[in-house]
C-alpha cells in the first residue's frame, strides 16, 4: 500500500512524467520501426528538381532534408537515430542493472560482515578516481574491438558483445560497491534495527524485512544514475572509435590515409565519434546524435529527480529541511551534535 501511494505521487511529478514519457516514446518508436518497418532507413543521395534533374548531392543538412539531414552515405539521420535508440538505451540499462545487482552483494558483504576491511578497501578503490573510466575501458577493449584495416576478425560478434558488457560492468563495481556498502551500513546503524535485534530478529529476517525495504528505492535511484554514467561512458568510447560490438577500420581509397570507422552494431556512440570527424564540414552529423544523447541523459536525470523527490521524502516526513538533508545520500556526513558552532570560539 505504501508502494501504491508512492507510485501515484510519482505519476504526478511533472519532471518524472516528461522524462519517462520521452524515453518510452523513443524506445517504442524504435521497436515499432524494427518490427513493422524492418529497420528500413530512407536513403537520399541526390535531390531532384521538378523536371527530374539532379540539383544537389549529399550529405544534406537538416534544412535540405528535414528533420536531421543525412549522413555521408545518404541515410537519413533521424531514422538512423531511431533505429539505434533501442540498442543504446538497452545496453545502458543492462550494464547499469548488472552493476547495481553485483555491487549490492559485494557492498552488503563489505558493509555488514567485513567492516574492518572497509577502511582499507576504500583506500585501494581511491585509485579509480585518478584515472578516467573511459581510459580504463579503452585500454581493455581496444585490442578486442578494433579490427585494423586488412586484418581478419579474431572474435565473433557475440563474444565481443559479452566481453564489452563484462568490462563496462566490472570497471564500476569497486566504486559502486563502496557507495552501496556505506549506505547499507548507514541503515544498519538506524534505531529500528537495534530494536528489531532486541526483539529477537535473526540476521536474515532483519536483512529481508528491515534493510532491503529501506534500500530498495535507493538502489533504484542508484540504478538510474548508473544508466546515465554508462551513457556518458559510451559516448566517450564512441568518440575514441571503440564502438559497441566491434569497430571495423576501413580506408576510403587504397592510396588515401583517411580512415573510416564502421560500427558493427548500429548503436549511437559510433555515430557521435564518426560525426566529430566531420565537425568542420557536416556539423549536423555530430550535433544530431550528440543532442540525442543529451536528451536521453536529461530525461533519465528528470526521472532520477522525480524519484528522489518522492521516494526519499515521504518516508521521513515532509519537512523541507529534512528532505534536503537526505537527498545527499552519496556523501554521508558525520552526525553533528551541535546545531551550530562559531569557528572563532574554537581557535581560542
Amino acid at each position: 500500500m505504501y508502494a501504491k501511494s508512492r507510485l501515484k505521487k510519482l505519476c504526478k511529478h511533472p519532471l518524472f512524467l516528461v522524462g519517462f514519457i520521452f524515453l518510452i516514446l523513443l524506445v517504442s518508436s524504435s521497436l515499432i520501426h524494427a518490427i513493422f518497418f524492418h529497420s528500413k532507413i530512407p536513403v537520399t543521395t541526390f535531390l531532384y528538381n521538378g523536371e527530374g534533374k539532379i540539383i544537389a548531392s549529399g550529405p544534406f543538412n537538416p534544412l535540405e532534408v528535414p528533420p536531421l539531414g543525412t549522413d555521408p552515405t545518404g541515410q537519413q539521420m533521424f531514422f538512423v537515430l531511431i533505429q539505434g535508440a533501442k540498442y543504446t538505451i538497452g545496453i545502458a540499462v543492462i550494464v547499469a542493472g548488472l552493476r547495481v545487482i553485483i555491487s549490492s552483494f559485494v557492498g552488503l558483504i563489505l558493509g555488514n560482515y567485513l567492516p574492518k576491511l572497509n577502511k582499507y578497501f576504500s583506500g585501494l578503490v581511491n585509485g579509480f578516481y585518478y584515472i578516467p573510466t573511459a581510459l580504463v575501458c579503452y585500454v581493455l577493449l581496444f585490442d578486442v574491438m578494433m579490427i585494423p584495416f586488412g586484418f581478419e576478425d579474431e572474435f565473433s560478434f557475440v563474444q565481443k558483445v559479452v566481453f564489452e558488457l563484462f568490462v563496462l560492468t566490472v570497471v564500476a563495481i569497486p566504486t559502486t560497491s563502496l557507495l552501496i556498502g556505506n549506505q547499507i551500513n548507514q541503515v544498519y546503524k538506524e534505531e529500528f534495527i537495534t530494536t528489531a535485534k532486541t526483539l529477537g530478529g535473526s540476521p536474515i529476517h532483519i536483512l529481508r524485512k528491515h534493510v532491503l525495504p529501506h534500500m530498495r528505492p535507493r538502489l533504484l535511484i542508484q540504478f538510474m544514475q548508473e544508466v546515465v554514467q554508462v551513457l556518458i561512458l559510451l559516448i566517450h568510447l564512441g568518440f575514441f572509435h571503440v564502438l559497441f560490438g566491434g569497430t571495423l577500420e576501413k580506408k576510403l581509397d587504397t592510396d588515401t590515409t583517411e580512415k573510416v570507422y564502421i560500427s558493427l552494431s548500429s548503436e549511437w556512440s559510433g555515430i557521435v565519434g564518426e560525426g566529430f570527424e566531420h565537425l568542420h564540414g557536416w556539423s549536423w552529423t555530430f550535433f544530431g546524435p550528440a543532442m540525442a544523447f543529451a536528451l536521453v541523459i536529461l530525461s533519465f536525470n528528470f526521472v532520477i529527480k522525480g524519484m528522489e523527490d518522492v521516494f526519499l521524502e515521504d518516508r521521513h516526513g515532509t519537512k523541507k529541511r529534512k528532505k534536503k538533508h537526505l537527498k545527499k545520500k552519496t556523501t554521508p556526513r558525520e552526525p553533528q551534535y551541535l546545531d551550530f558552532e562559531f569557528i572563532r570560539d574554537h581557535e581560542k
Binding site: 582499507y120 583506500g123 581511491n126 585518478y130 580504463v136 585500454v139 581493455l140 578486442v144
Partner: peptide, 19 residues
C-alpha cells in the same frame, strides 16, 4: 593504500589476453 590501488589498476592491461 591509494598507491597500491594505482599499481593494481595500472597492471590491468596484462590481465586480459584477448578476451
Amino acid at each position: 593504500l591509494t598507491t597500491i590501488g594505482i599499481v593494481l589498476i595500472a597492471a590491468i592491461p596484462a590481465l586480459f589476453q584477448g578476451i
